[in-house]
């Protein structure tokens, strides 16, 4: 992602974390969420630094401090509501019917018992409370890239895991 977004410098975030600057610097969010976890940097690191694993840990710490993107919060709500980050919709049902498949796949979406189990687990781990917390500012970053851009509608949010 560094090749596409010049402001995204993965080493900077690792250094900031190491120096204990992450609390002061809102700029780490949303940048820490830009990583596609492709492992290219980790694979090529001459010092074998587990960069992606470190980024995931920094992200988890940020989320636990209430710094979560609105867009990610919506994906989390999908999971709580449907048991899927990308739930079925009318277009999906129509396609399934044409293919001779049941309208609903044999997943948690077609199983009240299964959905209840998933919700129980999300309650027990505290996930529901975690993702309902206060959100950080995530509208426009310093590169002027709108995170909640005009065409960022719910259908994209649904398909964005």
């Amino acid at each position: 992602m560094g090749e596409q977004e010049q402001t995204y410098k993965i080493r900077k975030f690792l250094e900031m974390e190491k120096l204990g600057l992450e609390n002061d610097e809102d700029m780490m969010v949303p940048f820490i969420f830009y990583c596609t976890t492709c492992y290219r940097c980790q694979d090529n690191c001459p010092q074998d630094v587990e960069i992606v694993d470190a980024v995931l840990q920094i992200r988890e710490d940020a989320v636990h401090k209430g710094k979560m993107l609105e867009s990610h919060k919506r994906v989390a709500q999908m999971l709580i509501e449907h048991g899927h980050a990308v739930p079925n919709n009318s277009a999906g049902k129509e396609k399934r019917k044409k293919l001779g498949l049941n309208e609903m796949p044999p997943t948690v979406q077609g199983s009240d018992k299964g959905l209840k189990e998933v919700r129980t687990l999300l309650e027990l781990t505290g996930f529901n409370k975690l993702v309902a917390g206060e959100q950080c500012k995530d509208t426009v970053n310093e590169a002027g890239v709108s995170v909640k851009n005009a065409d960022y509608d719910n259908s994209i949010a649904e398909e964005s895991t």
Binding site: F33, T36, T37, L56, R59, E60, V63, H64, M68, H72, V75, A76, L79, G83, H84, A85, V86, P106, T107, V108, S111, K113, G114, E117, V118, L121, L122, T125, G126, F127, L130, V131, T161
Partner: peptide, 21 residues
């Protein structure tokens, strides 16, 4: 068929939010 299976859950998002979940 794996009846009642849910989202895996997706590694990029949910692993970043809370690893135990």
């Amino acid at each position: 068929e794996l009846d009642g299976a849910s989202c895996c859950p997706a590694p990029g998002v949910f692993k970043s939010f809370d690893k135990v979940t």
